[in-house]
């Protein structure tokens, strides 16, 4: 396997920095900061692309055009929207807990962006290839719900609070099937490290070996990212916008940003765990990675614009009564499979 282009670039930049600063430690620190800036830029760009994609795909599915006026093919629509959101009046509800209410959208971005630290974008391109990679992802991703709860609570609005309560219930229902479906994969690779999981799929992708885990994972991931058919936290027909009801302008845009950052993370996680990560023939790893991630995002969007919303009790029933037992069964089946495999060879 060739070392990725980006790895060489990092090495090259580190050399230059070392030359400028004359100290390897400061140079590395500088590179880490640069990487953080880059990842934020990548996330922002990806969000803009996703928003545009979502609206065009939605238009396609709904037999209409979608944005096509601002810039070529409407590509600048999201930028225009962002400018509009930034220039909007900042409305703070009179009865809200101002401090909590204010910091929630800012904090929300942290867990959403933190998981990107352990994603392998290409061969060797990973910010922190820690030994507990997948565990870290599960642990950090679920932190977002605390901020939903905080925002819903601090808004002093019944709709927001109901949304917050739903967010907690939904997170609990989705995290456990996710963890148990991933466990089957961890059993097969014998490692929690993300790069190990990717390289274990060099022969065959885990989607072929673990189809049940894949289905459970996708469904639970839809719950985790609050997208239709499980967009109960927003549930606009019922509770207006859930925890974001009282947020407008830039604060709302931050919620929006976090939502799409989570969607991207979900897609990356799916690709890494089940679709072979950055691996693929002919093209460089990073292009395979981007291709696969956007294919998964397309599927998520396709689902969103086709299905109706479930009810809260139906979502919980699905999670606890169907997905969790299936995931447990899958773990057992995987264990037996591994045992037989070892016994044969």
């Amino acid at each position: 396997m060739h070392e990725g282009l980006l790895v060489n670039l990092t090495v090259f930049l580190t050399r230059i920095a070392e030359f400028i600063f004359g100290n390897i430690f400061i140079a590395q620190l500088f590179i880490v900061l640069l990487e953080i800036v880059v990842i934020f830029a990548v996330i922002s760009l990806a969000v803009i692309i996703q928003v545009y994609m979502e609206r065009r795909i939605c238009g396609l599915i709904q037999d209409r055009f979608g944005p096509n006026r601002v810039g070529p093919f409407g590509l600048l629509q999201t930028v225009a929207d962002m400018i509009k959101l930034m220039s909007k009046e900042d409305i703070v509800p009179a009865k809200a807990e101002k401090l909590l209410w204010g910091i929630t959208p800012m904090l929300l971005f942290i867990p959403a962006a933190l998981v990107y630290a352990v994603f392998p974008f290409d061969n060797g391109v990973i910010f922190a290839d820690i030994g507990i990679g997948i565990f870290f992802v599960i642990a950090v991703m679920s932190q977002g719900v605390l901020l939903f709860l905080l925002g819903g609570y601090a808004s002093e609005n019944k709709y927001s609070f109901m949304g917050a309560m739903r967010a907690v219930a939904q997170m609990l229902s989705s995290e456990i099937p996710i963890a148990f479906s991933i466990l089957a994969i961890v059993m097969m690779t014998g490692s929690l490290r993300m790069s190990d999981i990717v390289s274990a799929q060099s022969g065959i992708w885990f989607i072929a070996v673990q189809p049940l885990a894949f289905i459970i994972f996708i469904i639970a991931m839809l719950m985790e990212t609050n997208r239709t058919p499980f967009d109960l936290v927003e549930g606009e027909a019922e509770i207006i916008a859930g925890p974001f009801t009282e947020y407008s302008g830039m604060r709302w845009a931050l919620f929006f940003l976090a939502e799409y950052t989570n969607l991207l993370a979900a897609a990356i996680l799916t690709v890494t765990l089940f679709l072979g990560g950055w691996q693929g023939p002919f093209l460089p790893g990073i292009s395979w990675f981007i291709l696969k991630v956007f294919a998964v995002i397309f599927v998520f969007m396709w689902i969103r614009w086709t299905f109706p919303r479930t009810r809260i009790d139906q979502m919980m029933a699905l999670s606890w009564k169907v997905l969790l037992p299936l995931a447990l069964f899958n773990i057992m089946a995987t264990g037996i499979g591994i045992y037989i495999y070892k016994w044969i060879y």
Partner: peptide, 16 residues
Amino acid sequence: LAVDIGATTGMIYPFR
């Protein structure tokens, strides 16, 4: 009804 259940696409077709 479709949009109240959350199926936005289900709304567009009858309206069209």
